[in-house]
Amino acid sequence: MKIYLLRHGQTTYNVEKRYQGTRDIPLSEEGRAQLIQADIFPKKVYVSPLIRARSTADILFPEAEQVVIDDFREMCFGIFQGRNYIEMEHDPEYIAWVGENCEGCCPGGERKAEFCDRTCDAFVPLLEEALENGEEMLVIMAHGGNQMAIMERYGLPRYDYYHWCGPNGGGYVLEVDADTWHNEHTLQLIEEVQYVRKEDGQEGRNHA
C-alpha cells in the first residue's frame, strides 16, 4: 500500500515565516494559484480541520470525500502563534524555548512530544484499517508538523524530526505491507512529490 503524506499549500504566514500552529489561516491567492489537481484519485482524503489543509485537498482531490481528523491539526505554538523569529529575537520566553531545542512547552501551547503522540495516535488506526481492508492508498492532507512527527517515528531512512518538513503542496510517498508494519512498524520512503505548477508554467507534479 502507498501512503501519501502531504502538506497544505502556501499561506501568507508561510511566506512571512510566522508560526501558524492552530490559527485557521487560509491559503494565499498565490498559494491557491500554484496548486494543481493531483494525478492520483483516492476515494477518501483524511484532512486536518484547518482551512488551509481542506482547501488544498479541494484542489488536489476535487472528487474525494474529505474525512476530518481533528488530531491532524498543526501543533499549537501558544503565544508564539502569529509571530516570526525576527519579532521574537529578544523575547525571553521564545529564547528559552529555542534553547531547549523547541522541546519544551510553548507558553499557552503544546510540547512537541505531546503533539507527536497525538498525531501518531491518530495516524496508526487509519493505517491499520487501510491495511486490513486491502486499500491501495492512504492519503493524508495536513501540516508540516504532522509529516515530521510521522516520518521521524516510522519513516525509513531514519532522520530526525526537522528533516521531514515537506514543501507546500507536497510531501512524501511511502510504501508498506501488513507484515512489515506489524513486525517492524516502519514505512519506506519511495518518492517525494509536489503538486504545483512547474517553473515553466506547465502543469504536472514535481518530483524531488
Rank of each mutant, 00 (worst) to 15 (best):
I40E: 00
E100Y: 08
S48D: 07
R83W: 13
F61Q: 04
G9R: 05
T56L: 07
R73H: 14
Y46S: 03
G31V: 04
F41C: 03
R23F: 12
W97I: 03
K44A: 11
I51K: 15
D24F: 09
S48T: 05
F77I: 07
T22P: 05
E93M: 13
Q34A: 14
D71V: 01
V47R: 01
I40S: 00
I36E: 07
A96M: 10
Q20M: 12
Y46C: 01
E89T: 09
I95C: 11
N14Y: 09
A57N: 01
I86K: 13
E89Y: 08
L6A: 01
H8E: 05
F72K: 07
Q66C: 01
V68D: 12
P62A: 06
Q37R: 15
L27P: 09
Y46P: 08
I95H: 03
H90E: 15
A64V: 06
Y19C: 11
I86Q: 14
S55M: 13
L6K: 02
F77V: 09
R32D: 01
E100C: 12
K43E: 13
P62G: 03
I69T: 04
R52Q: 07
E89Q: 15
V15Y: 11
T56Y: 02
E89C: 14
M75G: 03
C76A: 14
G9P: 04
E30L: 13
A38Y: 03
F41R: 13
I95M: 13
G21I: 04
I25E: 07
I69M: 10
Q34I: 00
E63N: 14
S48G: 09
I59S: 08
E100P: 00
S55Q: 15
P62F: 05
Y46R: 06
V15F: 10
E100G: 12
A33I: 03
V98T: 07
D91T: 11
P62V: 09
Y94L: 06
Y13S: 05
P62K: 07
Q66E: 04
I69R: 01
I25K: 08
V98N: 04
E74T: 08
G99R: 02
L60S: 00
P26S: 09
V68I: 15
V47K: 01
T22V: 14
G99K: 04
R52V: 01
P26N: 11
N101V: 06
Y46K: 04
P92V: 09
I25A: 05
E65P: 00
D58E: 14
I25F: 02
F80E: 08
G99M: 05
G99S: 07
E89V: 12
A38V: 06
L60M: 13
P42W: 03
P42G: 05
P62D: 05
V15Q: 13
Q66F: 02
K44G: 00
P49V: 01
Q34N: 13
K44E: 13
